[in-house]
Design a protein around this nucleic acid. Structure first.
Lengths: 343, 343
DNA sequence: ATAATCTTGTAAAGCGCTTTAGTAAAGCGC
DNA sequence: GCGCTTTACTAAAGCGCTTTACAAGATTAT
């Protein structure tokens, strides 16, 4: 590894401008109150001349702050959470911070990721993951050492973290009521892994929605999947549902991709949508718009935005209490539910 | 901004273990050849005891290398390029590097982004963007200062950068030939902004494919769009195409999302796919699989992987020549082209 | 027994910045 | 002309590491 060509340092600039290092430092940091216009000019000229770029590394060491934030994303099947990255980066940079991105494949990996971020001395970190039950002790330690942590979709109960979660419960409840309002009496729901908190909340919302609509709960209309569920599995679920004595006229899929699979399966079975069977998804992925898919939106970008703002707030005021925010999941009514326009 | 609780430093460890700072440093860095087993044990015990975590910042300053790579992503309509991020981060970390992610919204912004990465003293950087014509002078300067740069989808001709590009030409050519092989004689193509290099290459591939299939070129079958093209615009294009005296029986969309729009438009017009009209997309987005969409794949993740490997190679051997790689774009034959199974 | 060589470890300089404490010169009141 | 403040700038310590040059003790060679 060859040595790279040397860049100009602050002392080069000082020398070129005929002033002290401190003065250059002051000029850089805008502490220009007690400085002659002429001196400032000379320094700026020297900086331009030498194409000087201050070293964040040296500055980080001296100030004990890096102006860098960490983002840990737990890798999941669908890259849905990646949608939080862009807005987070945008807000971070606007606030003068950069983003160190780390992907974690599992809990073990997450510990390592967090550790890495601590070594890099980030000024704060965000963690976004599926709502599976999690160990959070390592994160508590991070905060204890003085690095604020904001959680997205983790449903930790400790008040010590800033947290953003989605209101799956109300969202699904609204979805059920919407279908009921359109006259559906047999509404099926496909859900993900049952140990996931989001799954539990959605089932709660499902029951609440039925109750509010005076519809009975029927175990047969609930189809749980799991991590390994393939398109084939979902198709089978659909076939079983339609083979029921009293088949569903509306189906809530566990996410938009599953919804797409369901729609294809139904079309292959000669069913029209939403005529014969209405369908809704969950997520509101970018492509859902182009499918005309009715869906419950998971406001991922918004979650990212709120998370980083909470984090920044706490970096600047560490004494303030962390906040928990529950984001509403609005219904996005499009074509597949039959509730839009003339359906 | 309150002061954060102090973490253990290398000198704390040295003191606790009763050795010099240098020895601790040596222990950290595995320079353990000239060291008693007992000393090593004492140091490691002290590190564990104090929960010591070396500071990358201090180390970065001392060594003039940060073990960090920069990734600049030019923000575009579809978040397709985000798919490169995960594999890049994975490979980076495996090689002992972290990833600083920066999003650029335009060229002006990109300069700033690159500057930021230089201040952070990354050991190398990758830039991924649309294939619009670009100014690259700032990147030349970066390399001149000793920071290697790898480009994805930029088609810069200078041999000084490592570069990954996609072979749009051959890909589209193959697509046309595939359609021709299925008996189609009227093949339409929707393309993106004409000033984009990828558009030019695709049109070249289109013509080459027709020629190879002994089919005439017909201006009417080429529909360019641009940055502002909306779903409505594409639908109109489709209607115009089908209103032609001799309408197309196959349509190549400019990307998978446009393909989804086209499919919906066709369905609304009562056309069956691929029976009446065959459709293919470009990109191979995750959802395309669930639509059964035939498409030309843009191997984004693979591009990321290759880019970072080239970059790492050059960081470790700066004297070696940069490489240019042209990635093949394989056809992914699914249902919408009618060429799969019984169609 | 003495010099030469290893072995194991250390002291101190330096990486490029911030910041504190301070200084010399100028301005002011009397 | 004397102390006092103000203004404009600087010297030097310190952030937490790496690395070079060197030293003291143990071992071997003669």
């Amino acid at each position: 590894m060859a040595k790279r060509p040397n860049r100009a340092t602050i002392s080069d600039v000082a020398q070129a401008a005929g002033v002290s290092i401190s003065s250059v430092s002051n000029a850089i940091n805008g502490k220009t109150a007690a400085m002659t216009e002429e001196t400032l000019q000379r320094i700026q000229a020297a900086m331009r001349e030498l194409d000087y770029r201050p070293s964040s590394v040296a500055r980080g060491l001296a100030m004990q702050r890096t102006a860098t934030l960490g983002l840990v994303v737990t890798e999941i099947e669908t890259p849905l959470f990646l949608q939080a990255v862009t807005p987070i980066e945008r807000e971070a940079r606007q606030a003068g911070y950069s983003l160190l991105l780390v992907n974690a494949r599992n809990e073990e990996d997450e510990r390592e990721a967090v550790n890495l971020l601590l070594e890099k001395q980030v000024d704060g970190m965000m963690v976004i993951s599926t709502s599976d039950p999690r160990q959070n002790d390592h994160l508590h330690k991070v905060q204890a050492e003085g690095t604020p942590v904001a959680l997205i979709n983790r449903a930790d109960v400790s008040p010590e973290f800033d947290q953003i979660n989605w209101d799956n419960m109300t969202g699904v409840k609204d979805l059920v009521r919407h279908f009921a309002g359109l006259g559906h009496r047999r509404i099926a729901i496909l859900v993900g892994p049952v140990n996931r908190r989001s799954t539990q909340e959605r089932l709660q919302g499902y029951r609440a929605g039925l109750e509010a609509s005076l519809l009975p709960f029927d175990e047969d209309l609930v189809r749980p999947g799991d991590y390994t569920a393939t398109p084939e599995d979902w198709k089978n679920s659909i076939e079983e549902l339609l083979a029921l004595a009293s088949p569903p006229t509306a189906i809530i899929a566990s996410d938009d991709i599953v919804a797409a699979v369901v729609i294809r399966a139904l079309q292959e079975m000669g069913k029209s949508i939403p005529g014969d069977v209405a369908v809704a998804g969950i997520d509101d992925q970018p492509f859902s718009q182009y499918l005309g898919l009715t869906t419950m939106q998971l406001p991922v970008a918004e979650a990212g935005r709120q998370a980083i703002n909470l984090l920044l707030e706490r970096i600047h005021h560490p004494e303030k209490q962390a906040k928990h925010i529950l984001l509403p999941c609005p219904l996005v009514i499009r074509d597949t539910c039959g509730g839009n326009k003339a359906g």
